[in-house]
Computed example of a mutant assay.
Amino acid sequence: MPGVTKEQIARAKEWDLLSYLQAFEPQELRKCGGREYRTVTHDSLKISNGKWNWHSRGIGGRTALDYLVKVRGMDFVSAVETLCGERGAAVWTPSEVPRREKPEKPFTLPQENRCGTAAVSYLLGRGIDAEVISQCIREGILYESRGYHNCVFVGKDSKGKARYACLRGIYGTFKNDVDGSDKRYSFSLPSAEKDSPYVAVTESPIDALSVASLLKMQGEDWTKNHYLSLGGTAPRALLGFLHDHPAVNCISLCLDNDRAGLSGMEKIREALKEDAELSRRVRVVVDNPPPDFGGKDYNELLQKTAARYAAAKREKTKPGCGMEK
């Protein structure tokens, strides 16, 4: 490595982030329970058990060297020299430290189409139950956009403010997040019970609504659960949701039955263990991908299940079925 020796690199890696900040930037630390800390500059960057994780960005590490490179944006050589004291460790000016995480573009919800029948028809065609769709519309988390007639799935923060939205085309395969969306506040359908301990976690909003529809189809009370879409497989939306819903302690991981989904469930379990508060609070975490016969995701399982139910119903209503002359 040009500019630094192996010995310098080894010395730099001896600094864990907590020790580094305690020694040189104590004003950056904020205790948030037990032995866990957050940083002032990045509220979602947590330090616990010798590791740090910047949950809103999905990155982390163990050492202060990782932090200086991945978070502060320093080049590797400068970071090593800083930690070894050659460049004056932790001599920062306020202008060098960004004080707030800002989206690249401002977040604005797409304009709503007053008549949203196309989006509703599309979701019904995907097997989503009409009552589930109506509940989403009442909650203000689902509507049809005016320009391209996409389904708009809205994510809100704990105060009810829209902070995230994803689009799903109803005439093709278009999928996209709205510019400026904050995935910490991904789409979620709340339980009818405010203090419900249950949440079903999926990769997409349609899969979340599919889980609810399947439960209703099977005669279960689908309203007792929260339903959360991660907008992918990263754990940060779930971590934020759990901190905003302290009553939740039972998690059903309904991610896709493929390599990305199965890997995502492992990462979620690791993230929960690394969070001091959640590792103590969460009692049950169940891996619950759709069964192999049900397809890759829960919407495929819903459509196959609906087809079986319909076929069984037709058999029962055939003329003369089960009757003696």
Rank of each mutant, 00 (worst) to 15 (best):
P2C: 00
I9K: 11
V132D: 13
S19R: 09
E270G: 00
A212E: 03
A271M: 08
L124R: 14
Y148H: 13
G295A: 10
G147E: 15
G232F: 01
G60A: 02
K316W: 02
V69D: 02
D292I: 01
I9C: 10
V77C: 06
Y20L: 11
P197Y: 08
L189W: 05
Y309S: 09
A119Q: 07
F174H: 06
G264V: 00
Q27C: 05
A271T: 06
V201A: 06
S78A: 06
F293T: 09
P26Q: 08
A119C: 15
H149C: 10
I133V: 13
K13S: 10
L21Y: 04
L123D: 05
K51E: 14
C250E: 15
S95E: 15
P110H: 06
D179H: 06
C166E: 15
A247C: 05
G73W: 07
E25Q: 15
V69S: 04
K267D: 09
G127A: 12
L272T: 09
K216W: 12
N249H: 14
C136V: 12
W222A: 11
A276W: 04
L253K: 03
A192I: 14
D157I: 00
E274G: 02
L262Y: 00
E104F: 07
P246F: 02
Q8E: 15
E274R: 08
V199P: 02
D43N: 04
V178H: 01
A192G: 12
A212T: 13
A208L: 03
V97D: 06
E300H: 00
R35K: 12
G219M: 02
A260N: 05
A311Q: 11
I59V: 14
P94M: 11
L239H: 02
T233Q: 05
R281I: 08
G125F: 01
K313L: 13
I59R: 05
D182A: 05
D275P: 01
E266P: 01
V152K: 04
S210H: 10
A312M: 10
N257R: 11
R281L: 09
I59S: 05
S188L: 07
E36F: 00
L301I: 00
S134F: 02
S158V: 15
A212D: 15
G261P: 04
L209G: 05
Y171Q: 13
K13C: 11
L301R: 08
D43Q: 14
G50N: 08
A200H: 08
S279N: 08
E266S: 00
D66A: 03
Y171R: 15
D182S: 07
F76R: 07
C32F: 03
P103W: 05
R281V: 07
